[in-house]
Design a protein around this nucleic acid. Structure first.
Length: 205
DNA sequence: CGACCGATCGTCT
DNA sequence: GACGATCGGTCGA
């Protein structure tokens, strides 16, 4: 069902519309190669964070701190940060340098290296929770905040296209998860999910 | 099945 | 000193 893998190049991320990039990342393959171990999964859920004008973004109002510094990086930069003291959340930066747009990867359908995902997460069996949710998938693929500041054109982390395309009626758009504090921006339709995919994190629109 | 709650700690005020 | 871009378990209907 797929042609050759092509690593997405910087032009894919260097676009003005982060919401469109979030949409286009559905179906792409996130790959890590860490300590000689390859793991990958198809992206089935994403969220866009639209920088200084988005109350849900760490860069809202131009805020720029040690943690969020990598949000301001070149397109294709990896931004991983710790949430609730224990979860590492993986984002890819879009738009040009110093414009802090990013896409949070929220769910994957596992492809390669499932045994290694089980080792990393400590889960006994490969059920749908293995790569459901941003904290879970980052753990499963071995991505931590120490990868923040790298990029997705590296040996360690990359995102590839195998030719799969979802049709419009296979995609559902909702508001984002866990951003109730973002006031009027909490309801923006910035979350994209593959309709009916069992790995999509469960919450309502 | 939905609502709620505790865990856990880096980051920012 | 307060607060999360979460998760998984528990409790009650």
């Amino acid at each position: 069902m797929s042609g050759n893998l092509k690593i997405l190049d910087q032009s894919f991320y260097n676009r003005k519309n982060v919401v469109q990039v979030a949409r286009d990342l559905l179906g792409k393959i996130l790959i890590t190669q860490l300590d000689g171990v390859r793991s990958s999964g198809r992206i089935v859920e994403t969220e866009a964070y639209a920088g200084v004008e988005d109350r849900a973004s760490h860069a809202f109002g131009g805020r720029r701190t040690a943690r969020s510094e990598h949000l301001y990086g070149d397109p294709g930069t990896v931004y991983v940060y710790i949430c609730y003291g224990m979860h590492h959340l993986f984002n890819v930066i879009t738009n040009k340098k110093d414009i802090p747009h990013g896409v949070l990867i929220r769910a994957l359908e596992p492809m390669e290296g499932i045994e290694h995902m089980l080792n990393r997460t400590g889960k006994p069996v490969a059920d749908y929770t293995l790569t459901k949710g941003p904290g879970n998938l980052s753990c499963a693929l071995g991505m931590t905040k120490f990868h923040s500041g790298g990029n997705v054109f590296s040996e360690e982390i990359s995102i590839a296209d195998d030719g799969l395309r979802y049709k419009k009626n296979e995609i559902v758009i909702t508001k984002r998860i866990g951003v109730e504090g973002a006031r009027e921006d909490a309801d923006l339709p910035y979350r994209f999910i593959v309709k009916g995919n069992p790995y999509v994190s469960a919450k309502k629109s």
